[in-house]
Write a protein that binds this DNA or RNA. Sequence first.
RNA 1: GCAGCCGUAGCUCAGUUGGCUAGAGCGCCUGACUGUGGAUCAGGAGGUCAAGGGUUCGAGUCCCUUCGGCUGUACCA
Length: 497
Amino acid sequence: MTAPVPRCFRGFRDVFAGDLLLKQRMIETVRAVYERYGFLPLETPAVEFVDVLGKFLPEAGTPDGGIFSFRNPDLSPTAPDGDPDRWLALRYDLTAPLARVVAQYADLQRPFRRYQIGSVWRYEKPGPGRFREFTQFDFDSVGVPGSAADAEACCIICDVLEALGFGAGDYIINVNDRKILQGVLEVSGLAETDIGAEGSQASTVLRAIDKFDRLGRAGVVQLLGRGRKDETGDFTEGAHLEPSQIEKLEAYLDAKVASRSAVCDRLAGLVGSSPIGAEGVQELRDIDRYLTALGYGSDRVAFDPIVVRGLAYYTGPVFEGVLTKSIVDESGQARQFGSVYGGGRYDTLVERFTGERVPATGASVGVDRLLEAMKLLDGARRTATAQVLVTTMDKERTADYLALAQQLRRAGFATEVYLGKGAIGKQLKYADKLGYRFAVIVGGDEFAQGVAQVKDLQLGKQMADSVGSREEWRKGQPAQVTIPLGGLIDHLRGSLA
RNA sequence: GCAGCCGUAGCUCAGUUGGCUAGAGCGCCUGACUGUGGAUCAGGAGGUCAAGGGUUCGAGUCCCUUCGGCUGUACCA
């Protein structure tokens, strides 16, 4: 038997304190905003039946390739392909399970407004900042027909990003409406084609528009026509539209202007006589009205015809939160973070189960991706969870050190007692590396006098720059004061105030 | 999934047309500077050169395969 090699499966990873503490603090901030709007928490299983997730491929009789799926171990291996219980999968988002919950519990009070955080899994190629297991933090309102809920969702996204330290101008929420997309396809002569149908012209067109950010206008236009060859020589088949059709869609691609109402006017013209298109424009007008009334201007929420949000289940307004602040990474490269929030209205997701049309809207934040951006924004990070390290100079007095730390904790200071080995110098180094604010030193002399040395490590760090010699550094005992043991708590309180 | 590039110490990398015991900086550990972080100084640990196979007198260097990473492309709830 060979020894196992410690390793993680591709696209999976371990997360250590430095990142994890930032993540947890961020989650707290997001949760506070969601609760301020009255959302309630929900938890659902990581594993769902594949047909519930809507990722079952009836033609092949197997689950979609993009998900982690497996056979139901409760079922006999010879269970027929048609058995809906046969396949299980890890959830790939939190919206599909939400739809299941709404369909399953008929007595849920509606509107049902819930927030949910959790890991989701996708079986796809990992990339930088892209993993096969990652965290999403969603909020959704179920049972809300009007555009007010969509406008509110945009406000929530703004509030979250601002609570996390992004200012107006550091981010933008781009909003579009699937009904407008549908209307434009309609007037371009692509109406009868089902968007969802694989290989349909309509779906090819939507995919092309979705690539605007990456390929630019010219690239999209190529994909609307014959197709596009990339720099490696790879060829992507286009939608093969007529020149007149492409012309209409080009006008659509150019419809974005700064003012939301002006975008609506332009889109109204492009959508022409299509009823569904007109409906979409009206939804955007409503959203604009609400946002304007609430003081969310186009510097924070803009209307952008380019937004598609994949071929997903969206039925009306769709939106994405994008970080626009240019962020410079360790190697000095400017990095674009792109979309961190994604969401929209999905009025047919519950209908799949019960036949009842239940309107719903919401959004999802990619926690890990947003965290990456935040790390680069304020590079400074602290790994310590405690503020105070009680050093143990005299191991014989360990009981006294433990008791002292207990006193500090009762007074509200997160405190660690150094229980490793090593002299005082090593202990202070440890405190310094982990980012402790204070070190408390009590040796034989101090015990005799009933005092403690309290060192402010942050202050000392600042002073270190101006100190040249070792003599000076040590003699100066930078940022260190002698405090009677009885006054220790008051001193720490005072220093933190 | 497809295509191209890459894989040498914990990290960033060097390693000449294949040629002695594979190196540096940073980090880490130990110690000195009388019981004190930084700086400085002196030591030390750490590599089956991603893994496996092949060519060769000889492979970190050349060839094949696998795994992993990056870039582009496809898909993306």
